[in-house]
Design a protein around this nucleic acid. Structure first.
Lengths: 229, 229
DNA sequence: CAGTGGTCTAGACCACAAG
DNA sequence: TTGTGGTCTAGACCACTGA
């Protein structure tokens, strides 16, 4: 059950690197030479090599040729799931409670991240997500009110996150992860001591003109984020 | 300075999704139709759509066609840098101290991860990385001795990580992140109170047959992992 | 200047899966 | 059964960049 077509070429190139046939820093044959060797069109070789370059295994430059990367940049890809899906993927029942929903001026650190979207008042939504009825994560979210329809959606029924992904297409943003000590409010809601180590995710979502929302997610102890390399 | 070629097509498709010309769940025109509209070959459209499908924006199935994803799977890609490069990228001076290097039996949690590579004794290397002379991260590493040359390299000169990336090609593995309270040893070395929230990275690297190394990296407080979405 | 990768083309066949 | 995406081909032109 070995790969066919361009994937077979990709795998063969990987094999030659793995067995040190081609060592880091080496220039490998040109696309035309490899195409002749494998008996295929250059386009097929091109597709395989582009894939390896994207993975950080090869470095390609016009005229200079294709070299095996010296320090292959290890990359990890994470899927950022909707929390509900993440809980259900564990075979648990996902529920959530909206703890608060207000119009507030932006706290300083939030304003710094959201820029001019935070000049007026923001919609603040605080949500507790539960897995099998036990606290899973605490979410503090600040929303740019300009993106909400006039009678705001009822976030008791649909979580804010789910409403956004369905109604705001193709936004960009940043995401950051850190370990922090639980603040009083988070500690109380998650049922842990103040200062307990908490895995925090902060996400900023930007629309075409201005920031849409800033989210701070505090996970209950024991949370791990894991992926294959 | 707008994109040319297949990237222009990709961007135009994204634009139509963003302005809700094509809404989530909609089936978009076939490759042949889009090729006719844009006045290019089907292969060019194909390349653009494949790229968007990989990004999670589109879902494609033979015969069924191409649809705008309902819940676009947000993905984040992280580069996992060599610690030295990470420190130097901040404009700081990177140094490291090998605190211990021994042959030890595998601790239970390490043995569980490394499998049969952990049956005998492992090489244990404990390293402190410093940025401008201040503790940056504590690394505990267990190495499968089978991968080391007979006189083991002098890890006082070259860090273990750098030796590995240069000498072990194309390994696979997993990586995980969590927030934990500092244990006594880590707290002492990093100069923080026991129990302080610590961002921990655990990485398992597997070779063709067996596990190569397991690393547990405890970052000094204030560490953030950040990326664009 | 010239060699290499980046891309496009027009056509073709095939695999898959919806109806 | 048949429409759709997945891929390959042979050739071509271009962009970049090393020499």
């Amino acid at each position: 059950m070995t790969a066919q077509g361009w994937e077979a070429i990709r795998d063969e190139v990987k094999r030659r690197i793995r067995v040190r046939d081609w060592t880091p820093g080496t220039t490998i044959p040109t696309e035309a030479e490899l195409a002749a060797e494998f008996g295929c069109a250059r386009g097929t070789v091109n597709r395989a090599l582009i894939d390896l370059a994207r993975a950080g295994v090869l470095e390609r430059r016009r005229k200079a040729g294709t070299r095996v990367a010296l320090l292959p940049v290890r990359q990890a890809r994470f899927a950022i799931p909707v929390i509900r899906a993440e809980i259900e993927a564990r075979g648990q029942v996902a529920t959530h409670q909206v703890l608060a929903m207000d119009r507030v001026p932006a706290p300083v650190p939030v304003a710094a991240r959201m820029g001019r979207a935070a000049e007026g008042q923001l919609v603040y939504v605080e949500t507790l997500y539960l897995a099998d009825g036990r606290p899973f994560a605490h979410e503090a979210r600040w929303l740019n009110p300009a993106v909400l329809p006039d009678p705001a959606p009822d976030f008791a029924d649909v979580s804010v996150n789910e409403w956004l992904v369905a109604n705001v297409a193709l936004a960009t943003g940043d995401i950051a992860f850190a370990a922090e000590g639980a603040e009083a409010r988070v500690a109380q809601v998650l049922g842990v001591p103040v200062g307990a180590p908490i895995f925090v995710t902060e996400r900023l979502t930007r629309g075409a003109d201005a920031a849409i929302t800033f989210v701070r997610l505090s996970h209950a102890p024991g949370y791990r984020m894991q992926t294959a390399l």
